[in-house]
């Protein structure tokens, strides 16, 4: 039931995704602030399908040359492509402190035993500025293969970006900057090079009192 209703292709399903800041309070406790978060969901057949977005509407927000979104989408499979609109929670006090930990955690599951590669490209005005590539091996748990990217440190570029964004006095200014800030995550089978998931992330700042929010869309080409 999750296919078409959550971030899942026929080969890989995203279970959880978060970018966070841990701030120590004292030697034994810390505060965890979630900038963005996709929690576990268990859609059923009675749930509606995700809305769709024509991938051509966002081509220019992501790398367009070799290995860009167009080439990836044309290669397929199309059921692996998603757009996530995040409303990021920036309602925290940031200080420069080396004891703070900025991290990203994500989890995936598959019915297949494989090695996955996750490429995360941060883009400014559609051009890649930094890329992180991670390789994960499967762990067999409860009848399925689990992949965990646990507490991957956020890069310096992203930490500086968050700090600069926080220093802007008005939310509309932050949103204006975020209009040209995107992230493209491509999860690939390391051995076959098949695209397992391709997720395009775009952002606004949350105005909610309930923290980070998101909408998920299927990317299509009608």
């Amino acid at each position: 039931p999750w296919q078409g209703r959550s971030i899942a292709s026929s080969k890989l399903r995203m279970l959880e995704f978060s970018a966070f800041l841990e701030q120590p309070q004292d030697p034994e406790t810390f505060n965890k602030h979630l900038f963005v978060h996709i929690g576990q969901s268990n859609p059923s057949y009675s749930d509606p399908y995700l809305e769709s977005v024509d991938v051509r509407q966002i081509y220019d927000k992501f790398p367009e040359k070799k290995g860009g979104l167009k080439e990836l989408f044309d290669k397929g499979p199309h059921n692996a492509f998603f757009l996530v609109k995040f409303w990021a929670d920036l309602s925290l006090n940031l200080q420069d402190d080396s004891s703070f930990f900025y991290g990203v955690s994500s989890q995936y599951e598959s019915s297949e035993n494989m090695v996955i590669t996750s490429s995360t490209k941060v883009c400014s005005f559609g051009k890649q500025v930094v890329e992180k590539v991670e390789t994960e091996y499967a762990r067999f748990e409860n009848g399925r293969y689990m992949f965990r990217i646990h507490r991957s440190p956020l890069c310096e570029y992203m930490i500086n970006f968050i700090h600069k964004l926080k220093h802007l006095p008005e939310k509309y200014m932050m949103n204006s900057v975020l209009e040209n800030f995107t992230i493209l995550q491509v999860v690939t089978n390391r051995d076959t090079l098949e695209t397992l998931l391709c997720i395009a992330y775009v952002f606004e700042v949350s105005t909610s009192e309930h923290g980070a929010q998101h909408h998920i869309y299927r990317l299509v080409k009608d």
Binding site: E51, V53, Q57, D60, W87, Q213
Partner: peptide, 24 residues
């Protein structure tokens, strides 16, 4: 690209794209 420099607000996107969920 034909859509280059076009503000996101002027693109063909679902209405929900601009509606922040109010979930707890």
């Amino acid at each position: 690209s034909a859509v280059e420099q076009v503000p996101m607000r002027k693109r063909l996107l679902p209405a929900s794209f601009w509606e922040e969920p109010k979930l707890t």
